[in-house]
């Protein structure tokens, strides 16, 4: 470490030098922690299949690895990909339960892998499958993007307004309570877990899903949107829309954002039946 002429800063500088050591030390401890003896071995089983490769055949592959404290499926799969199988594909983006990219079936239940702790599985056996209802890209990676884009286009997932906004003028006031209600429904992250949980969607691929019905409810209560219930009926008033829903509510039970899908779908059903 080179020295400056300024002697008064020297002490402070040394102090900071030690900070760097603290950070380095924490790295070392972290590494050590990773190899603690006595941590259990877990087995992760994954479907492997590459539909774009004609020679690929679906298979289930077991990966055995040491569990580390606080290990999520994101951490486990990253480790598997770097050390055990360079060819395993899965989708992770934010790894914090915010972006909705990593939905998969974990021991049969659709959930976000990044928010799933391996320690939640007492048996130490975790079976991973790609989300059903979406096109399989490879292994655990599915094409939720295309599905969600089509859904958004189909339900006109945007504000439709006859009013013109002058953006240099004071914004239109909104009751705080109403804004909060819209926000509640706007929290959907399009992870597709509701769709993969849905018995209607499993059988009928044109079903709009809880994500689509929730989106319509979101715009229905938004004061900026001037569409009427008749307009919304044109979007979801059929058996591929609200009337296809059988209210089995696996969507509500599995939603990682705890959206009130049950109430909102019921609300839309009442509205649409009365149009």
């Amino acid at each position: 470490m080179s020295k400056t002429e300024d002697a008064s800063l020297e002490k402070q500088e040394q102090n900071i030098g030690k900070v760097e050591d603290v950070v380095k030390k924490s790295e070392l401890v972290l590494e050590k922690e990773m190899s603690i003896d006595g941590s259990r071995e877990i087995t992760i089983t994954s479907l492997k299949y590459n539909p774009s490769n004609p020679n690929s055949k679906p298979e289930f592959v077991d990966y055995k690895l040491r569990e580390t404290p606080g290990m999520t499926l994101y951490i486990a799969l990253t480790k598997i990909k770097a050390t055990l199988d360079n060819d395993l594909s899965s989708d992770f983006v934010c790894r914090a339960g915010i972006c909705g990219a990593c939905g998969m079936l974990v021991n049969g239940r659709p959930q976000l892998a990044c928010k799933t702790l391996t320690s939640d599985f007492e048996s130490g056996k975790i079976e991973l499958l790609p989300l059903p209802t979406f096109k399989l890209i490879k292994d655990l990676s599915v094409d939720t993007g295309t599905w969600m884009k089509n859904m958004s286009l189909r339900v006109n997932s945007w504000i439709v307004s006859k009013e013109k906004t002058d953006i240099s003028k004071i914004e239109k006031p909104v009751e705080p309570k109403v804004a909060d209600e819209v926000f509640e429904l706007d929290r959907c992250i399009e992870c597709g877990i509701c769709v993969a949980s849905c018995s209607t969607a499993i059988m009928r691929e044109d079903f709009v899903g809880a994500v689509g019905l929730n989106r319509v409810a979101r715009f229905q209560i938004d004061p900026h949107d001037t569409r009427t219930d008749e307009d919304f009926y044109e979007i979801i008033g059929d058996d591929d829309g609200i009337f296809g829903c059988m209210s089995l509510l696996a969507c509500e039970d599995h939603c990682p954002k705890n959206l009130s899908l049950q109430s909102k779908i019921a609300y839309m059903r009442r509205k649409m039946v009365n149009v």
């Binding site: 049969g108 059903p132 009928r204 696996a250 039970d253």
Partner: peptide
């Protein structure tokens, strides 16, 4: 296909309302 998918879905998911259906 619908039958197979529904059956597998409910077997995998073990979700009570789905099983009730």
């Amino acid at each position: 296909r619908q039958f197979l998918r529904l059956k597998t879905h409910s077997n995998l998911m073990k979700h009570s309302d789905t099983n009730l259906w």
